[in-house]
Computed example of a mutant assay.
Amino acid sequence: MVTRPGLYRLLGETLNEVTTDGRRSKGERRRRALIEATLRVIERDGASGVTHRAVAREAGLPTTAATYYFDGVDGLLTAALTTCMDDDAEKMRQLTVAADDSDSLHALARLMAEIVATPGRLLAEFELCLLASRRPDLRGPTDRWKGALADFARRYTADPVRIQLFTNAYDGLLLHALLADQPPTVDEFEAMLRELLPDAR
């Protein structure tokens, strides 16, 4: 039998857990909102436009929120890069485990066409990757992304040169699509992917 003091203690512990979880959830939502705002600022103004004030204003939050969750502009840029690369790697992993090889290649081509149709986030990602090229300490997320690309290629080939070719060419295809007056269609992307992975059926 639970005594009244014991019941009060249990209720207090439950309320504390709910309060803590609520605060944690709110904090995670705010942090994600600030990261997404950072990407929009980079898309619009480039990486040089990222400040705590600019990001907080873009997110509709007070400047103190940005300074609370991120130490300096470098923290914002690192979080944005990590989020982009990990999100992209997860999408690639989902394609890698698709049931049908032929369908997964077509699905990747369709994804590429969707990316270049609304290229804002892609522009931000390339800016962040250039930052990582000058900062070896930021290459963990880009290495995970390249690893996801390599895993996709291994579905079709065991040739290490072919895998490296696909891994290096994928981002290049997207970059050149940004520079084209008319970006490639799904069918055009798929044709290029099949040239990179000729063993795919």
Rank of each mutant, 00 (worst) to 15 (best):
M1C: 06
T3F: 12
G6Y: 00
E17T: 04
G22E: 10
G22D: 02
S25M: 01
R30Y: 01
R32A: 09
T38V: 00
V41G: 10
R44F: 01
S48N: 08
H52I: 00
A54H: 02
V55N: 15
A59M: 14
G60E: 07
P62E: 05
Y68G: 00
F70N: 10
V73C: 15
D74I: 11
A79W: 10
A80R: 12
D87G: 08
D88W: 15
K91G: 06
L95I: 10
V97P: 01
L105M: 14
A109V: 02
R110M: 09
A113W: 02
E114A: 11
E114S: 09
T118K: 12
T118Y: 06
P119H: 10
L122F: 09
L123K: 06
E125L: 14
E125M: 13
E125K: 14
E127L: 10
R135W: 00
P136Q: 13
D137L: 15
L138K: 07
R139Y: 10
R139L: 15
R139S: 13
G140R: 09
G140M: 08
P141E: 12
T142Y: 03
D143R: 05
A150K: 08
A150E: 08
R155L: 09
P160R: 15
V161H: 07
Q164P: 01
T167C: 11
A169K: 05
D171Q: 08
D171K: 08
L174I: 05
L174Y: 12
L174P: 01
A180T: 04
P183T: 11
D187Y: 05
L197V: 02
